[in-house]
Nucleic acid binder design. Structure first.
Length: 430
RNA sequence: GGAGAGGUGGCCGAGUGGUCGAAGGCGCAGCACUGGAAAUGCUGUAUAGGGGCAACUCUAUCGAGGGUUCGAAUCCCUCCCUCUCCGCCA
């Protein structure tokens, strides 16, 4: 959520950055609403002060010996009653206006950082670096896509998954299941060594949690919902991790807090019919290890770089070539101030594909979630950052395509051998 | 799911209609004492919002929301959560 003071004092400080996202917004109405809310609050609190004064006086007079039912007290009571009615009327008005204000404020996205390149779409994203050498078909070699490889190895069953659930769900079998589990362990172990605290949070989350991190109210159609219980299936561990400290005031010394959480993630993928229908790329349920920082505002820029490096470290350990892009303003997510996407090389598809998105959200989520830290005598909103470290299914896809051999097996990177208990995947392996 | 108890400041805990944002203790900070420390003493120590250059000031908050009252931490209603016992269960 954006700072209401900006809105009251100078809405151009909001509209100009939002214009860089490609959003033409007229906030003059909203500004009026915010000013109105402030004025009403002022009026109301003055009336309440008067009411408090009268209440105190009644007490004083009675203690001084006035008859509780006597004339002078009765007069004050009536005054008090009038004020009470006026306060109630103002309060009702105020609530209505505040609700309108909040409703409109909650659907405004975060302001992009000045450092974020201006652009309209993903075509304007800026490539910042490349690592590794993408595997290209060598001498008449035909590289397969991961779903073909998985099918041949018998480690994924798509059709039976439809029987169990629906399309866009997947069942992993044998070495596929083991590899998925190995990747999760490997990633968590790796991050733990770099100072992350491992977290295994609830994956059903309430409406307040989804609102705090920015998925609600605007993107309700993206999440699965358990209507009976006011609970949702979490679309990313970013949601429970943001709310881990919702409503808290942390001490400055404990910052930065760095968490790594594995969770399944659930997304409805509404509007993506026909895209990535095969394989492990776009599923309603997928596994992800998420990195999350709570830090001081002045540290968040460095934290963003470090978090991204921590995600990249996984790709490097797995010998997977990748590139880092900086998203332009037009491609930036709702809560983000600035985002680096990591794209892994898919050797079979012959393309880079997003495998991690590392964002700094400034105080946007902290304000929604009311997460502060004690800074000397005051409390201040802190900054939050999140990034995938990594999306597990897509990592498996990249590994399958990168390691495919002429004999039909798939070679695994050295770092995984101990975790999987084998150095390659072979068809028919239990 | 059933029965009972309870939710007060960073923590413990008092407070059952009036001057209570809340006694007391612990913790923490500053000062004094000390060669330094401990102990001791004194002082200070919630959050959010509004107004003010500031000193400061007004409002709200004692789990949440509503109600009674001139006045609610205190009385009433609803909900949430925690604990104990019973039931069920991986």
């Amino acid at each position: 959520m954006l700072d209401q003071r900006l809105l009251r004092n100078d809405p151009t400080l909001i509209t100009a950055p939002l214009a860089r996202r490609g959003l033409a917004t007229d906030l003059s109405g909203l500004q009026q609403l915010a000013l109105q809310a402030r004025d009403l609050e002022q009026q109301r609190s003055e009336l309440q002060a008067e009411g408090n004064r009268i209440g105190r006086e009644v007490g004083e007079r009675i203690r001084a010996g006035a008859a509780p039912g006597g004339e002078e007290v009765k007069e004050l009571r009536e005054q008090g009653n009038r004020i009470k009615q006026q306060v109630a009327a103002l309060e009702e008005q105020e609530k209505g206006i505040e609700a309108q204000l909040l409703e409109q404020l909650m659907v405004l996205p975060n302001l992009p950082s000045p450092l974020c390149p201006t652009g309209r779409s993903e075509a304007d994203n800026v490539e910042l670096k490349r690592w590794g050498t993408p595997r290209l078909p060598a001498g008449g070699e035909q590289l397969q896509e991961h779903w073909q490889i998985a099918e041949r190895l018998g480690i994924v069953d798509t059709e039976r998954s439809v029987r169990i659930a629906q399309s866009r769900f997947v069942t992993l079998l044998g070495q596929g299941a083991r590899l998925e589990r190995a990747l999760i362990s490997f990633m968590l172990d790796h991050h733990a060594k770099r100072g992350y605290t491992e977290v295994l949070p609830p994956i059903l989350v309430n409406t307040a949690s989804l609102t705090a991190s920015g998925q609600l109210p605007k993107f309700a159609e993206e999440s699965f919902r358990c209507a009976e219980d006011d609970l949702w299936l979490t679309p990313t561990a970013e949601v429970p991790l943001t709310s881990l400290h919702r409503g808290e005031v942390l001490s400055a010394e404990q910052l930065p807090l760095k968490y790594a959480a594995y969770t399944p993630c659930f997304r409805r993928e509404a509007g993506s019919y026909g895209r990535d229908t095969r394989g492990l790329i776009r599923l309603h349920q997928f596994n992800k290890v998420e990195l999350y920082w709570f830090c001081r505002p002045e540290d968040s820029e460095a934290a963003h770089e470090q978090l991204t490096l921590d995600a990249e470290a996984i790709l490097e350990a797995l010998e997977l070539p990748y590139r880092r892009l900086e998203l332009c303003t037009g491609d930036l997510g709702f809560s983000a101030v600035r985002t680096y996407d990591l794209e892994v090389w898919l050797a079979g598809a012959g393309t880079y594909r997003e495998i991690s998105s590392c964002s700094t959200c400034g105080d946007f989520q902290a304000r929604r979630a009311s997460i502060r830290f004690r800074d000397g005598k005051q409390t201040r909103l802190l900054h939050t950052l999140n990034g995938s470290g990594l999306a597990v299914g897509r990592t498996m896809a990249a590994l399958l395509e990168a390691g495919q051999q002429a004999d039909g097996s798939v070679r695994l990177p050295q770092a995984l051998v101990a975790y999987v208990g084998a150095d390659r995947l072979v068809a028919g392996s239990p």
